[in-house]
Amino acid sequence: MTAQITIPRLETDRLILRAHTLSDFPDVAAFYATDHSKFVGGPMTPELAWRSLAMEAGHWLLRGFGRWSIIEKASDQWIGITGLWYPEGFPEHELGWDLAEHATGKGYATEAARAARAYAYDTLGWTTLISLVAEGNDASAAVATRLGARPDGRFTHERFGAMNVYRHPAPEALA
């Protein structure tokens, strides 16, 4: 046995952040099936959604960190993805969030991303984080703002196109 990675489980008031599993696939495929995912690489076919789910898992092994499935405690349902993202071509470590359409409007993305950010700062010892928000993704920009992140230039990704960079407050500013 060579490769081994332990993916931590995080908990907030209303949410659980845990490793992706194959049982999440129907929810992930449904998320990527509609126009709701247009700012984060979708819509895409179930086959590409599966590859995306596998990529989420593989990111943990390649980088030692990654993203989690967000589970709503009350319903035990998958409601989205948040976490730390650094695929080839990204300018810096990124904090990202994707929320299923039925789970929006409840502050879940902010709550989940705050827990992921705390993990980056407190457990991994990172000193800064950005979030990349696609042009026109106002809902995501609002989450970034609620998290205290501020615009910090632009970045063009070879697949996602022009994106606004939001920089999160440093750990000291959140203490």
Partner: peptide, 20 residues
């Protein structure tokens, strides 16, 4: 593939182990 797609597929190759 372009560089991003190649990285994504490489991560997926590893993630396949976790999923299957």
């Amino acid at each position: 593939l372009n560089a991003y797609e190649a990285w994504m597929l490489y991560a997926a190759e590893i993630g396949h182990w976790a999923i299957r």
